[in-house]
Simulated scan of single mutants.
Amino acid sequence: MPVAEKLEGEVEGAPVEEQIRDIAGETLDQLTRTASRAEAKLADARPDAATAFASTNSLTSSAGQNLAEIFDQGHQGLSELAREPAIARLVVADEAGTSKTIFITRATPLPREPGEPFSASYLSPMGRLAALPVGRDADVPTPRACEASRWSNARS
């Protein structure tokens, strides 16, 4: 059946147009929220690695250089999130049928705020679900006691 025919009528009791509007609104809200939070973190003052130590010698000099590299990597990740807050939106379901929305990012995602959808890097086990065809199952390690859960890239 052509995609256009599938999109006519109602899906799960709601008109398709309404579902698309809801998904688009949720997605735009998340993209805006992530970009704004990343920009705010970028605006925070960055400590100077050279002045982080009271006195410098060969040991603290290399530590200062390492600290500067860490800050630079964090700055680069925040810049990527501000520019491109997400590259995919997934709805995944576990074996029990519990579903959740996950936004996939290229950079390390920001810590989740209460009420926000989950975010995962495309390099993470959960983020790799974005590469699977819709409906395909995969075992994904979860942080809870390092157990693996079976998740499916579900249709939304």
Score class of each variant (00 low, 15 high):
Asp22Leu: 13
Ser99Pro: 04
Thr105Asn: 05
Leu31Phe: 11
Thr60Met: 07
Ala4Asp: 08
Ser149Ala: 10
Ser119Phe: 02
Gly97Glu: 10
Leu78Ala: 01
Leu59Met: 09
Glu10Gln: 10
Glu8Trp: 05
Val140Trp: 00
Ser119Arg: 03
Pro143Glu: 11
Asp44Thr: 13
Ala49Lys: 07
Pro15Met: 09
Leu28Arg: 12
Ala145Leu: 10
Leu67Cys: 03
Ser152Ala: 08
Leu78Ile: 06
Asp139Tyr: 06
Thr27Ala: 11
Ala96Ser: 14
Ile104Lys: 00
Gly13Pro: 03
Ser79Phe: 05
Gln73Ala: 12
Arg83Ser: 15
Pro109Ser: 04
Lys41Asn: 04
Trp151Arg: 01
Val11Ile: 12
Ser124Lys: 02
Ala49Asp: 05
Arg37Ser: 14
Ala93Ile: 08
Ala45Gly: 13
Gln76Tyr: 04
Thr108Pro: 02
Gly97Lys: 14
Ala54Thr: 11
Ala130Ile: 02
Leu59Cys: 06
Asn153Ile: 01
Thr32Asn: 09
Ala43Met: 01
Thr108Arg: 02
Thr60Trp: 04
Val92Pro: 00
Ile102Tyr: 03
Arg144Cys: 13
Glu95Cys: 06
Asp48Tyr: 13
Asp94Tyr: 04
Leu59Tyr: 15
Ala86Leu: 01
Leu78Thr: 03
Pro47Phe: 05
Ala131His: 12
Lys100Thr: 08
Ala50Ser: 15
Thr101Phe: 04
Gly74Ile: 05
Gly115Trp: 08
Ala145Trp: 06
Ala120Ile: 00
Leu67Arg: 04
Leu78Glu: 01
Thr56Gly: 13
Phe53Thr: 03
Ser61Phe: 15
Ala43Leu: 09
Asp44Leu: 07
Thr51His: 13
Tyr122Met: 13
Val11Cys: 08
Arg150Met: 02
Gly77Ser: 09
Val140Ser: 00
Ala40Lys: 11
